[in-house]
Nucleic acid binder design. Structure first.
Lengths: 217, 217
DNA sequence: ATTATACATGAACGTTTGTTCGTTGTCAAG
DNA sequence: CTTGACAACGAACAAACGTTCATGTATAAT
């Protein structure tokens, strides 16, 4: 009376498919996914699954099926209650220009957002994400294309990694913030690089770096 | 630029229909509900709605349409349906030792997992996360404490960033994979570093790096 | 008047997709 | 050795469903 291996896989597939597309798969799609060559066999198994109250079907309706109780299998499982944080993509960051900061007109990402889990990034206001352009921040161990998650701030605390604008150099940089009297030591994340020293008056804190995300594949 | 009366009703109908059936309506069903006699008019209006980013369609797929999530202000509202991927934390990665790979006994993170959103990492099996220990992988622009998300694999494709075990050196490294005949060129992510060349026989692919996550705060 | 644009119509067409049916192989009961 | 349920196959069919096209309407701009 329990599910055959095939039937379990069918259920799983339907669940995943619906999650991805927002509409159910066809019989043929199910067949291909589960390794059934004949549509009639899929239909046969769907009927068994109906008998077992695992799903419902509308006759002669394409994609007319729904899971009775969406299997919590893999997808968002225990993470059901996981909180999410939506961080707006505000544009690019490269060495030669101040960042747009909070004002966000004309950014190339419209109102696109990066969604992250709350255990990665705190759910505060004033968060935004910038995409790193070029290799100019390699001393911060940041790669071209990385996303930098920033909390907008005008001040920083010792040891924070900050987005700094150095006025006389006209340069944006990511460094660890170490105030030392009237000057500030900016320490690269990469220990192979030397720190730089900037008069506090020349340094403008634009934000605090909360996280960096690199997507390879 | 705003919605015509008809388009608003179409949207409403689709929403209600999905609510009731768990799958989207056909063009003809929409037509009948909104009082449009011709399927092509429905198609026309659906195209307008797509331009206005109100819904998405899969071409030539019956019922292949979904409403674009209504903007969720701030909370997580619309993000509610965001799929999550749970990646098990399998241990540490440092230069001097092969990684535990798929077998995960004795790892210090019990069955702790890293939860990421599905748009960051594909929801495949064989994923795991390793915490980088030490600065030995700085040439990969990876920092001490970073999380590396890996798909377990024994083979790689040209250009993948891989987790490589070099047998004679007894060393684990993260590099871009470039096979060149009988040797393999391993290219660091940091262009300031030189590639290394390893006989293919000495190289063992342990996995493919999918993403890197660095949490600062 | 003329042209352009947005919207609407309905028939025709072609693909997608569910259903039916004749067969086959397996396995346990009679 | 049958018998019959269960599961599966693949071809053929028909209904469901999206797309295309030729043709009309309005309304506003030229």
């Amino acid at each position: 009376m329990s599910l055959s291996d095939r039937q379990a896989r069918i259920l799983e597939f339907i669940d995943a498919y619906v999650q991805e597309h927002n509409y159910p798969p066809t019989i043929r799609e199910i067949g291909k996914a589960v390794g059934i060559s004949s549509t009639s066999v899929v239909k046969y198994n769907l009927e068994r699954l109906q008998e077992k109250k695992k799903l419902e079907r509308s006759k002669e309706v394409s994609r007319g099926l729904r899971l009775v109780k969406p299997a919590p299998g893999n997808g968002d499982a225990g993470g059901a209650g996981m909180r999410l944080v939506r961080v707006p993509k505000l544009g690019l960051i490269s060495a030669g220009q101040p960042i747009a900061a909070a004002g966000q007109q004309d950014n190339p990402y419209a109102d696109d957002t990066l969604t992250l889990t709350a255990d990665l990034v705190p759910d505060r206001a004033n968060l935004y994400a910038l995409r790193v352009q070029g290799d100019s921040m390699i001393d911060a161990l940041v790669h071209d294309g990385d996303w930098v998650i920033i909390e907008h701030r005008e001040t920083a605390e010792r040891g924070d990694m900050i987005v700094a604008w150095i006025e006389d150099k006209e340069e944006t940089t990511l460094k660890y913030y170490h105030p030392e009297g009237a000057t500030v030591r900016l320490q690269p994340a990469n220990p192979a690089y030397q720190p730089i020293y900037v008069p506090a008056a020349q340094l403008q804190v634009q934000g605090k770096v909360l996280a960096i995300v690199r997507q390879l594949a």
